[in-house]
Design a protein around this nucleic acid. Sequence first.
DNA 1: GGCCAATGTTGCATCGTTGAATTCAACGTG
DNA 2: CACGTTGAATTCAACGATGCAACATTGGCC
Lengths: 327, 327
Amino acid sequence: MSARTVSNVVNGSARVSEQTRQRVQEAIDELGYRPNLAARSLRAGRTGIIGLAIPELHSPYFGELAGLLVDEARRRSWTVIIDQTHGDAEAERRLLTGDGGRVMDGLIISPWALEAQELVTTGRSLPMVLLGERSPQGMADRVAVDNIAAADEATTHLLALGRRRIAAIGLQPHLQNGTAEQRAEGYRRALRRAGVPPRPEWEQTVDSLHRREGARAMAALLDGGAAPDAVFAFTDELALGAMHLAHTRGVRVPEDLAVVGFDDIEDGRFSHPTLTTVSPDKRQIAARALQCLADRIYSPDNEVPASDLTIPHQLLVRGSTSGPQNP
Amino acid sequence: MSARTVSNVVNGSARVSEQTRQRVQEAIDELGYRPNLAARSLRAGRTGIIGLAIPELHSPYFGELAGLLVDEARRRSWTVIIDQTHGDAEAERRLLTGDGGRVMDGLIISPWALEAQELVTTGRSLPMVLLGERSPQGMADRVAVDNIAAADEATTHLLALGRRRIAAIGLQPHLQNGTAEQRAEGYRRALRRAGVPPRPEWEQTVDSLHRREGARAMAALLDGGAAPDAVFAFTDELALGAMHLAHTRGVRVPEDLAVVGFDDIEDGRFSHPTLTTVSPDKRQIAARALQCLADRIYSPDNEVPASDLTIPHQLLVRGSTSGPQNP
DNA sequence: GGCCAATGTTGCATCGTTGAATTCAACGTG
DNA sequence: CACGTTGAATTCAACGATGCAACATTGGCC
């Protein structure tokens, strides 16, 4: 009963007689033997581990997305290691260079501080899928919604309600990842099409996407000269923060202020009022991202052309822009 | 320039002349060499990876906790792999037996379906820290808040407001993990001390801890004979679901119905009204859990006695139990 | 009986790293 | 000048699993 035979039994690889198979299996069960993954990885050159790099796990959007990705990875027998970058460029860079050693077979990254250019250059050798950010030279796959179109729809919805003083919360001019900029562009495009000139004082910059910042930005808007009658927040968290502040100031939502968010996090379905939002198909984002990664990992040499997948989204109209609350 | 010398330079271990060190370092930088973690793990018998097993990543409480744990692990140069059990006993068991191979040096698990007895028996050889669930024979470390005392405080707070018809949402009699039971016990204890006999029809069982279930339970309470004037929900998510349903039925919070939750998730700070809650010190839970795990991993043979750490908690009174909304 | 094919099992070598032991060179001392 | 001492670099072996080739066994065929 050599080690080689045991290996054959465990992997069901070579021809093993039924008799030996059973004898080996018994021994395995009895001794509680488990194959050593480190050794297996060393031999195979693969670890079966993929990395997921997101800004923050505690943010509902990324929490929900991470959950879906982990489940999808399990379906493919992959294990996921999660790293939080906290929007720190250095952390993102360290992740890519594999500082301290290469463990991951591939990486799904939602970039924040680094621009795609640097991402792709630094992480050259690592199969990689970008969430949200566009890859410049088609060096890495990318999965994202059409932010411009989605923001346009959201804003158009507010215009259709008769609102004209529509503010935007969520600009991040100092960031490289481009998402905020695209949503801002969609917002402005919709305004212009409706003949409403975009006004800089209605575009609120934020330092983070937390509720707190949404509240701060809303306060700034209310304290500013012309109070808006609608707000398009670039994320649901910002929207919920804005609604919270509106409540504390006695501003009624949606009567005095219509609010639209982006992400369709669970909170928005149960908030008071419920939150109208742009809902990206998160399940599909997870599935497609892993599909891309698998393609890239399993066909290493052939220059697989980078795919740029646009995921469908949907505007969910709820209480924050309509009369009574819809579920 | 042998492999051994390179190893010495990388680890700074043995005596290496300054000259060779530089020569090696240059080569490393130029070739982009990274040590192979699989080989290192194989040699060392350690992977530097710990597992985190939680029911669901998308739940805000576990999302926040996971984020803190990941950060704390990074401070200790550990990598975290995350597994979602979805409350599935089989998934928890598979995790413990290391089905398909042993990767993790240790495991932090928030048990759901399995009772501690089985957990400890099955995962005998794996350093393990339990979150929430008590370990019977002191075979594994445990980190948790004093659920009974905390639930007592929450209920007592409602009693102090003059409420007497206090319902509880969140019982899970079919589960083994004991947390819900402890909170129920604290709830009943407080009622009895105040001379209010616990009434079975005010104890609402739930299938999950999602907002949806909180809403369902609240509906059941309102549709039942005697509508309660207060609710203690065993988690913030249940509480938010309950508040949502109250709003849709025109029940005012806190005037008609006072609500207390448990967990202190971010949503509760920005909901309308803001949510009174029991706040466990999550940062400390994360820090202590990793400390325990480190102790156990780094002193393998010595039977380190299992520690049972009680983490402090705090009742945060907010809008859902007071007049206007406090932040 | 001798030879080949099919089937089942084993041994060898290897993945990359590192502990332990070894070689090599330079230097100081009696 | 012979010899011990110290510092620096190298070689050897091993961690555990597995691709590959070799080996053993059996049965069938001419």
